[in-house]
Each structure stands twice: as C-alpha cells, then as structure tokens.
Nucleic acid binder design. Structure first.
Lengths: 224, 224
DNA sequence: TGACACACGATTGGATCCAAAATCCAGCCT
DNA sequence: AGGCTGGATTTTGGATCCAATCGTGTGTCA
C-alpha cells in the first residue's frame, strides 16, 4: 500500500493527488492545523491546480481536511471528546463489518492475518506498528463488500491516525502485550468464524484503547 | 429546507451546485442509475463546468453519486443487501448520536419535536412524510455537535432515501400507526432524558423498518 | 507612540480553451 | 442479414488565464 505514486496514474490525476495527500496526512507529514496550499501540491506532483482542488474536495468529504471559502484547506484539529466519539463509532461499526466479513474469509485470508499478527509481535518500530495494526484490522474486514461500510470504517481510522500515533509514541508501547492478547483472541474467533466472540473481542479492544487514550490528554494539547 | 437556490451563493458556487444535486437526488428527480452530465447541470445553474465537477467529487465521497473515469457520474443503484447493511449501520450509529445529543436538548427543542410529530400524525402526503420523518429524527440528534458523526448519519439517510420512498409508496403507509407509536415512545424517552430507553426505542424503530423493507424485494427490482 | 487605513502580495475561486477518451452511427465485409 | 471496423460527435479530464478575496506590512495621522 502507498508504494509508488510515480507518474503512471492512468486515468485519474485527481485520484492520484488525493492518494498523495491522504498518504501525507496518514504518515503525519501533514499534521492537524497545517495549511495545504494548492499550488504547492500542484507543483510537487507536476500537475495543475485543478486536480488538486478536486482532491481537496474529496478529502474534505472524507474528513481528512477542512475547507473555508477563500481561506484554503487545513488538516482539522480534533478535540479529545471528538476522538472519543469517533472511537465509540468504531466500537459500533467495526463489529458489524467484521460480522459481515467473517463468513467470506478464506483459509488463505486467515493465514495472511496470522502472518501480520506475527509481524506485529516481532516488531519494535512505531510507524511500522501503525501500518501493521491497520493491515490486521482492515484485513479482518476484507470479506465485507459493502462499499459504504468499508468507506466509513476507513475514514474513522484515517481521521484519528495522528492521535493514535501520538498515543503509541507516549508509552502506549508498554502495554503492547495487551494488544497482542486481544489480537490473538480476536484472530482465533475469526478463524473459528464465531461472530459473537469476534464482535465482543473487537469491541473490547477498541473500547480499551479509547479509555487509555482518555488518560493521555497531552495527546490533544499540542498546538504549534 | 431546499427553498430558494437563487443566485446568491456568495462564496461557494461548488457548494451551491452540490446542494442542488443533493436536493434533486433526495427528491427522487434523479434516480438510481441516472447519469449526470456536467454541462447539463452547469447550464441549468448558469455556472461553468468546474464547480459542477467539484460538487460531483463531494457527492461521490458522500455516497450520493458514483464516478468512473472518462465515463461520468451516475446515481448508484443499491442492492437489497446493501440497503440492509446501511440500516444495520444506522441501528448502531444513530443511538450513539442520540445519547450524545440527549443531555443538550432544551425544552424548546422538545416542543419543536412534539410539533413535528403532531404534523406527522396529521399528514397524509408521501413526500411530506419523508420530510417530516427526517426532520424528526435528525432533530433528536441536533444536540450532538460531533461533525463526523452528524455527517455519517446524514449520509446514511441520504443514500437510502430513494428506497425509503419506494417502500412507503408500496403500502408502508398502512402501518403508520406503528411508526407513530414508536415515535411517541422515543420522544417520551427524549423528554425524560433517558438514554437507555431512547437508544432501545430508536434501535427497535430502525430495526423494524429494516425488516419490513426486507419483505418488499420489489423496491429494489426496478431497473429502467 | 499607538492605532487605523490603505495598498500590495499571496492565494483561492471561476471561466474558457484544448486534449483525450468513450459513445454512437454508418458503412463495409463476410 | 448480421457482426465488425472505422470515423464523427459527445462528454469528460486537465491546463492556463482572469477576477475576487484575504492577510500583511507599512505609512500616516492623531
């Protein structure tokens, strides 16, 4: 994922620009509060401002940027309460995606998830963890083919990525064993195709993270 | 709502175009499968194609249109299963919005909701019912100030509006007394500020609608 | 010295123009 | 007669150009 942006982009310059900006925001190279200048991005990708504008419109609807007329686009800053509610949304929506996905996951999918979880357990790098964790969870939803549900789940992840990173960086690493235990229980339920258990473990996993996040108000205090 | 589009639109032509198209889709003047030609819309609003394109990007991210490169925009056609899942999403998300809203609703808000419900009980027109029902439910969420949650709830409503209309038109009217009973119970819980009851009644209300929708497969069969 | 006003630069919003892709239709060949 | 190929028209995608708005810095006046 997010490998080469390169020059191909056959058929969709605006989609390429959107992917580029999305990637910047997820990798935290664009942080909450940062302004996004159209011409800047256009130059950087060798395109005109037009596809940039369309991309910004798309990202705005995804909640990754906010737009004020004649004042430009910024990465929105979320309050602790907003992030808290987004996590509550995840607690309710993701179990649905999981239940929807569960019966359609193949043995290959299970093996792939097992591999990702092993990498998580062996990993020590922060950014790598964020990537793998995302791959693991979204992987468990890969059997769900309802576009609107997939899109919403992805958006909930994207819009809180910055705060998740800040949280893990502030020592969330110490409790990694909890994450792994939860992932293991979840994965087992997935392989057994037990939707009740899977939903319960998943909801608990997100809920615990939400609560721990609430104990780190510093994550939300960093204005620059 | 959707009163005058007129010529004002100070500061946002693309937003005006988006609102115009959104309104067309919600009023069922653009139906699933219909193609949207940029120049057509541009002419109709006396604007150039550029704001239309931006508007289409926004609507695409909202799930109201779908876009294929070089092939244009269409109103997406949803399968019964997709609509079913969207309703399941509503069952989970809207109670959250309600709980978030409940403590912040004023006595005036309660009175306004009471008034809307009375209008629903007195009403006989199909389109008017759809408007009022939407106003009632979204009104109960008006105390929720989490943008991302509000946006998602609105999108879930918007993307299924066409099928709701078709369902009501096919005789859903007959069971209007059930709707009113559920609304009354819900409204009472809202006024009492009882989140547990409110969530339960709301979830039940959406769930029952989902199940009845499932008994009317004809709603989804109408290709043109 | 401080505050207001004006003007200039920077940046976004909108329109027109050009290129590329897709669709449609007619003609041709089998 | 039917299907396939080719070009013409329609429609979308992208770039450049112009207008409007915002922010900023400076200069002037009380």
């Amino acid at each position: 994922m997010s490998t080469t942006i390169s020059t191909d982009g056959v058929g969709a310059a605006s989609a390429r620009v959107a992917a580029y900006l999305r990637d910047l925001i997820l990798r935290d190279e664009l942080k909450p509060g940062d302004r996004i200048r159209q011409e800047d991005i256009a130059d950087r990708l060798g395109a005109s401002r037009l596809p940039v504008r369309e991309a910004l419109r798309m990202l705005e609807a995804e909640g990754l940027t906010e737009h004020r007329t004649n004042k430009g686009a910024r990465v929105p800053r979320l309050s602790m309460h907003e992030v808290d509610v987004v996590y509550r949304m995840r607690e309710r929506l993701e179990p649905l995606a999981l239940t929807e996905s569960l019966p359609l996951l193949s043995g290959d999918d299970h093996a792939r998830l097992e591999g990702v979880q092993q990498q998580i357990e062996a990993n020590t790098d922060l950014d790598r963890f964020l990537e793998l964790d995302r791959e693991f969870h979204l992987g468990t939803y890969s059997g769900c083919h309802i576009d609107s549900l997939n899109a919403m789940v992805t958006r909930l992840w994207n819009s809180t990525q910055h705060y998740r990173r800040a949280f893990v960086a502030m020592g969330g690493q110490a409790r990694m064993w909890v994450v792994n235990a939860e992932h293991r229980l979840l994965l087992d339920a997935v392989v057994r195709r037990d939707p009740a258990d899977a939903e319960r473990f998943l909801e608990g996993h997100i809920r615990r993270t939400r609560i721990e996040l609430g104990h780190h108000p510093a994550v939300f205090g960093e204005q620059r």
